[in-house]
Design a protein around this nucleic acid. Structure first.
Ligand code: NAD
Ligand code: NAD
Lengths: 227, 227
DNA sequence: ATTATATTGTGAACGTTTTCACATAAAGGT
DNA sequence: ACCTTTATGTGAAAACGTTCACAATATAAT
């Protein structure tokens, strides 16, 4: 499922960082941003864990992969740890992102403030619909998908969000890969083939609803785990 | 992170089913739907694995938690296994879903065909904006959030999608829980508190972008795992 | 009927992730 | 200065998830 990430290693201790740890770093980052806004100077692993429904040991172990950020007896310095996590996650900078497929979901993503705040700036839109090409969405003019490769390069785009119908997603992703993009977030419910040096993440909303459905349907089977 | 699911057990062997297995069931279901459309009668664990980038052993193990669906030497019957998975996932029926917050992301979700195909029907919309209340979105009239509890009950809604600003999401979720809803899909980037008998899933798009960012930034540290 | 081939279902081995538990150390009170 | 409290950082243990490896069993060919 996560083939590519196996090669990702940590630059401090040469230990591989698990997918779960990376995802939790995002949670810590979000919690710390809030704590900072609330005026806290320090936070304990206990409090951080409580806020993100994790265990204190988990928080400490995750952070320990990257260094020693806390003070015994005191906790972690909120602002400083937030900055450190931003650097670790690579969001202490702006990423230039292009979005392909300015439809229902694509339009919703354009101009989403939270992305910008996290360092992801959608600066380019592509579509193949003549009625959309040339039109203005939140200040960005939609480009023709035919010009994909040249325009991605011209604007030194590093990440692409795919929001086209599932039927054409593989063709689009092939073009995106050919244009040299190494990071793709895909909303189409289809398993896309990419070379092993390209990072691909899928956002699959049906999967989350199916998880809920499974949970409801199977909860009554028996109440407790019985091996 | 997934506290509630710990209680979910399988009704055949009394073994707890892991979150990863449940998520893969969705992938199998999707692959089987496609295989059926392509006219295949049977499929091997090898082929199924290839299509979803998993291992054949993983596929067989996952399915074995729920029964014996295959024939040795032949593989799995495509149509039959798809039906069985639908029953296991609880999507062999229609779920009545309400959506709260008819903004950018909420509007995109209304009328999304894939949801309906998977058994999730958004039949009710809520908002607190007077300009939106009473307006028609893809055939559904937006209700006043003030009438949440009565309307959820009147239409026997079982699942709710939350697409309101993060600042108000906790209040909304409290009301939703009070109305007796047990399954919630949340798009607001905030950790919501719900009672332990309510299933909550979060869709966090920033997290996926941050994962990509981490992957790019950390790949250069070293190319290979060196323990 | 026999043999070759394909492929499942599953215990056991293995690897990874989480949790435990405690030595270590800073801060605050007396 | 000393004691108490708080809380980190981390090896080791436990729990969990994945892969291996093979017996079991079906089909197809001869
Ligand atoms: N709408 C949702 O709620 C939702 C939810 C989850 C996933 N998705 C997935 O996201 C994708 C987009 O969904 P949507 O509802 O926004 O669909 P949509 O039809 O509204 O938008 C698709 C857009 O892609 C454009 N497009 C089509 N072919 C193209 C091509 N070859 N090159 C460039 N652009 C092209 C279309 O012109 C359109 O603007 C789909 O794969 C869908 O399954 C949608
Ligand atoms: N837009 C995106 O691309 C995107 C992506 C991921 C997550 N999200 C999250 O989804 C949520 C919605 O985002 P959006 O961009 O659609 O925002 P939006 O402002 O466009 O929509 C929010 C909607 O909620 C309604 N609302 C506000 N308070 C309400 C209340 N108390 N009761 C009922 N309705 C209320 C508003 O009237 C509005 O229609 C936010 O939490 C956002 O962070 C958005």
């Amino acid at each position: 499922m996560n083939d590519r990430i196996d090669e990702i290693t940590n630059n401090l201790s040469r230990k591989r960082i698990s997918e779960s740890t990376i995802r939790r770093l995002s949670l810590y980052y979000r919690a710390l941003s809030l704590l900072e806004k609330e005026g806290y100077e320090t936070v304990s692993s206990k409090e951080l864990a409580k806020r993100e429904k994790l265990t204190p040991a988990q928080v400490r172990k995750d952070l320990s992969f990257f260094g020693s950020f806390g003070t015994r007896g005191l906790g972690y310095p909120v602002a400083e740890l937030r900055r450190q996590l931003a650097a670790i996650l690579g969001i202490d900078r702006q990423w230039q992102v292009a979005l392909i497929g300015v439809g229902n979901i694509g339009s919703a993503l354009v101009g989403y403030k939270e992305f910008v705040r996290q360092g992801f700036q959608i600066v380019k839109l592509f579509d193949n619909d003549q009625r959309k090409i040339g039109s203005n969405h939140k200040g960005i003019v939609v480009s023709d998908i035919a010009d994909l490769e040249s325009e991605l390069k011209a604007d030194s785009i590093e990440m692409v969000v795919i929001a086209v119908p599932a039927t054409v997603a593989q063709y689009i992703v092939d073009d995106v890969v050919n244009a040299g993009i190494k990071a793709i977030l895909n909303f189409a419910p289809v398993n896309l083939r990419v070379p092993s040096d390209v990072y691909l993440r899928n956002e699959n909303m049906s999967m989350e609803l199916e998880y809920l459905s499974f949970a409801i349907v199977n909860q009554h089977a028996q109440k407790r785990v019985r091996t």
